[in-house]
Design a binder for these strands. Structure first.
Length: 279
DNA sequence: AGCCAGGTTTGTA
DNA sequence: TACAAACATGGC
């Protein structure tokens, strides 16, 4: 199989910022940048001389073009952010204009963000990697091994003890029950047909999924850019940078998504990255 | 030692 | 409807 290399202009596509802004967990420092694993596919990606570089199998070129959302015009989004007159948003957008919102697999995104609740990013990455190592299918990337994200059927074979030993803590039962549901017929990929509202209600009916995880999954897994996930960092942004008084995170999420509409998800990423900082 | 991390569920009023 | 406590784990 052939290996291909694509170079993209780096003004609105910075690999490091796109991977390190908290939307994805399976990437590892490698060479001049990172190895990224999405579903069962792998790519070597790095920033160099103001360009974003993507190297992968020839047959995966289209997959990663879509994955990195390369058909979308991010200059328009960044310019809108700058014209919003919304506190630090303009500065955050300038700082994070190289971020692209990845088109991730819904099922992987759902499992990943259930793991993310009340947890920190390094730990989330570790837990997910242990699950992949134990249960993922082995694949080859030009002579180097990597593990695909496990199927729900494989996950469903394991008991709660297994998930606890992977470090999931009280989330073990959430993950196990979702795996069993999917293994016995629930197809979360079909949720993509639903409207944003219907999708969120459907996600909220899953044990272990609340408003914030539903918003992340809708945004990162189903491209619902009118979602504005509010976690501890965005609550901080709201209080400290927007002078907000609301206490309820759901209300805060409504405030932002009503204000920013279809650009909510992008702005949220700029603000998150700005507030939390880089790796 | 106690607080925090990309929160959700359950119980109470 | 709104709010508090409980829930595992590990880094600081």
């Amino acid at each position: 199989m052939k290996r291909i290399k694509r170079r993209y202009d780096g003004e609105y596509f910075v690999i490091k910022d796109t991977l390190c802004c908290g939307q994805v967990f399976r990437f590892f420092p490698y060479g001049k940048g990172y190895k990224i694993i999405a579903s069962d596919k792998c790519a070597y990606v790095y920033d160099e001389d103001g360009k974003a570089n993507v190297e992968c199998r020839e047959e995966d070129e289209e997959f990663f073009f879509e994955y990195f959302d390369l058909a979308r015009d991010y200059s328009a989004i960044v310019n809108s952010a700058k014209s919003e007159n919304a506190g630090i948003l303009a500065a955050a957008a300038q700082e994070g204009k190289g971020i692209r919102i990845l088109n991730q697999d819904p099922e992987e995104t759902l499992f990943s963000f259930i793991v993310s609740q009340n947890n920190n990013i390094p730990r989330i990455k570790g837990i997910i990697e242990r699950l992949c190592l134990a249960l993922g299918e082995e694949r080859d990337f030009f002579g180097e091994k990597y593990m695909a994200f496990p199927t729900a059927s494989r996950l469903a074979e394991k008991d709660e003890e297994f998930f606890k030993s992977a470090g999931l803590g009280y989330r073990a039962e959430y993950v196990r029950r979702l795996a069993v549901e999917i293994a016995s017929g629930l197809d979360v990929r079909q949720f993509g047909k639903l409207s944003t509202r219907e999708l969120k209600n459907r996600l909220l009916s899953i044990y272990g999924v609340g408003r914030k995880v539903a918003d992340c999954v809708a945004l990162f897994g189903y491209r619902k850019s009118d979602s504005f996930p509010v976690d501890t960092w965005l609550e901080k942004v709201y209080r400290e940078d927007f002078g907000g008084e609301l206490k309820n995170r759901e209300k805060i999420a409504e405030y932002f998504s009503e204000r920013f509409g279809e650009n909510s998800g992008y702005y949220q990423q700029y603000l998150f990255y700005h507030k939390r900082g880089k790796e």
